[in-house]
Design a protein around this nucleic acid. Structure first.
Length: 502
RNA sequence: GUCCCCUUCGUCUAGAGGCCUAGGACACCGGGUUUUCAUCCCGGCAACGGGGGUUCGAAACCCCCAGGGGACGCCA
């Protein structure tokens, strides 16, 4: 039997997500337990959303958790490159194979036509999908379009009758009718592949034997199987894990829960506890032990014992586990070391010191002034937000619009945070000093503190967002009706342009 | 709307037809230890979604229903 090889294939389009770590953990345990290899591949075919920063953050986060990989963009390996944006030639060759064999075809349809088509299909209560328009192009029309360099994509041909039957390691036989499967775009008009295509080509070339991924991919598995068949390749074994959930059972999302691994790092969780907690989502040690290391998990791992109900990510239980790790796994020296590393990283300290140096008269003033930099959620109450000009409603509005805008920031910097605040104040027609008031209380716990803009910047989006959200809750929360109004304001704010300062 | 997946305490789960008057953990409540608090210890609360089968016997197997979730992009 071939050596077991599994992979994690994150897309560098945002924060390092706990769901990525979760899937990586199970892939890694499975591979290493079978004496195989676990590798990492970066799926950065979405040029508009992928960033080098995000890629680096994801790599750092996974390493922090101890989920290291045998091959990857940073460590190399025999199946490289491990970044899809550097594999264009490979995809081009492979798309040509499909084109030649007639398994794929050029499509010149405009997005306007496709949108209209989809809308009509939805209205007629049909399954939405491509109607095969460009399939009927004559050879001459096709050549003319290509010669004229009309923008186009390449789509996959799909059988129109019968069904795709495949085996999922955890779920058994799954059958999906081919008529449910769209003629998926394989190559976009920017000549980069889509996920479905690149993923299949790479998994094959990288000799992946087991694809362990989230449940959200079940419905597109027939597309993948079809591609393997078109190429004449054997497909890997599929294994769809349950999805991590918010407390309301929806798919874990940052709108409802902190999902960034960086958040948990910044809040002072230990990586060992984090990984242990993820390991008990859908899985248990055969002997029922709840506290276990990644090595112990790997040794005892049995993928067939994964349970399929979507587990709710429960921060309360994570807190308990993390406390247990701190108590039981750290000596006094170990604690001192880990804590200092967390609290006083030179990088963080260098940013904080300038905010303090000119405001303190004694070193003993530092903790009362800047302790909020080393805190999680702050003990604020509604009365802390009382203000002679701002009502609680206005405070909530400022806070909510501010988080939404902070979330939009592409390059996190002091300047971009400042710009968000300035724009918000101008938009609301409230003086910047007043606009910043609820933010001061939410972020620093006090109405008077170090620059709140710098503080937000230094604390980062994850912790900042958590505190602002907490403040909104303390202020009574936003009702469904209020959310609608706020979303309307947000749209106005987004199209609002800052008046020129003369 | 169409298709797919899932369903044991509030939450994470154990459970492979009789060991189940369903076990453990978190949370919560009570008690003990502790100068306080936390830790620690002890106790309590609390679940097989519903209906049909199969079987001597069903939480477990089958079917239907309901509920939850996901997918239907030139995003991944």
């Amino acid at each position: 039997m071939a050596k077991v090889r599994t992979r994690i294939a994150p897309s560098p389009t945002g924060d390092p997500h706990v769901g990525t770590a979760y899937i990586a953990l199970f892939n890694r345990c499975f591979a290493l337990q079978h004496g195989g290899e676990f590798i990492l591949r970066i799926e950065d075919t979405d040029q508009s959303r992928s960033t080098a920063r995000s890629e680096q953050d994801i790599l750092n986060a996974l390493r922090w958790l101890g989920l290291d990989w045998a091959e990857g963009p940073d460590v190399g390996g025999p199946h490289g490159p491990y970044r899809q944006s550097q594999r264009s030639d490979i995809y081009r060759q492979h798309i040509n194979v499909l084109l030649e064999k007639g398994h794929a075809f050029h499509c010149f349809c405009t997005s306007e036509r496709l949108d209209a088509l989809r809308a009509q299909q939805m209205e007629n209560k049909q399954t939405a999908g491509y109607d095969g328009h460009c399939l009927s192009l004559t050879r001459a029309e096709l050549d003319a379009n290509l010669a004229a360099k009309v923008p186009h994509v390449v789509r996959m041909r799909v059988p129109d009758t019968g069904e795709c039957v495949f085996h999922d390691r955890l779920r058994g036989e799954i059958r999906i009718a081919w008529e449910q499967i769209d003629m998926q775009v394989l190559m976009k008009s920017d000549h980069l592949p889509t996920y479905h295509f690149a993923n299949v080509v790479d998994d094959h070339l990288m000799e992946i034997t087991h694809v362990i991924r989230g449940e959200e991919w079940i419905n597109s598995t027939p597309k993948h199987i079809l591609l393997y068949q078109h190429f004449g390749w054997e497909h890997p074994q599929f294994c769809h894990m349950p999805l991590l959930r918010n407390p309301d059972k929806s798919k874990l999302s940052k709108r409802k829960n902190p999902t960034s691994i960086s958040y948990y790092r910044d809040m002072g969780y230990m990586p060992e506890a984090m990984i242990n907690y993820l390991g008990m989502m859908g899985w248990t040690m055969p002997d029922g032990r709840e506290k276990f290391s990644i090595g112990e998990m790997q040794a005892a791992f049995d993928i067939d014992r994964v349970s399929l109900g979507g587990p709710v990510f429960d921060v309360a239980k994570l807190d308990w586990l993390n406390g247990k790790y701190i108590r039981e796994n750290l000596s006094a020296e170990g604690f001192a070391e880990a804590f200092s590393k967390w609290a006083f990283s030179p990088e963080k300290i260098q940013k904080i010191i300038p905010l303090l140096k000119d405001r303190v008269e004694r070193f003993s003033d530092v903790v009362p002034l800047a302790g909020f930099f080393l805190s999680g959620l702050l003990p604020v109450s509604a009365s802390d937000f009382e203000h002679k000009q701002l009502s609680p409603e206005q405070c909530r509005k400022i806070l909510q619009l501010c988080v939404w805008q902070l979330e939009q920031i592409q390059d996190w910097s002091r300047e971009s945070v400042e710009q968000v605040c300035q724009r918000l104040a101008a938009f609301l027609g409230i003086k910047i000093r007043e606009t910043l008031f609820p933010l001061f209380v939410a972020i620093t716990g006090k109405a008077v503190s170090t620059s709140v803009i710098d503080s937000i910047y230094i604390l980062g989006l994850d912790v900042g967002r958590a505190r602002i959200r907490h403040a909104i809750e303390v202020l009574g929360g936003v009702s469904k009706k209020e959310v609608k109004e706020l979303e309307k304001s947000l749209r106005e704010l987004q199209s609002f342009s800052l008046p020129e300062i003369g």
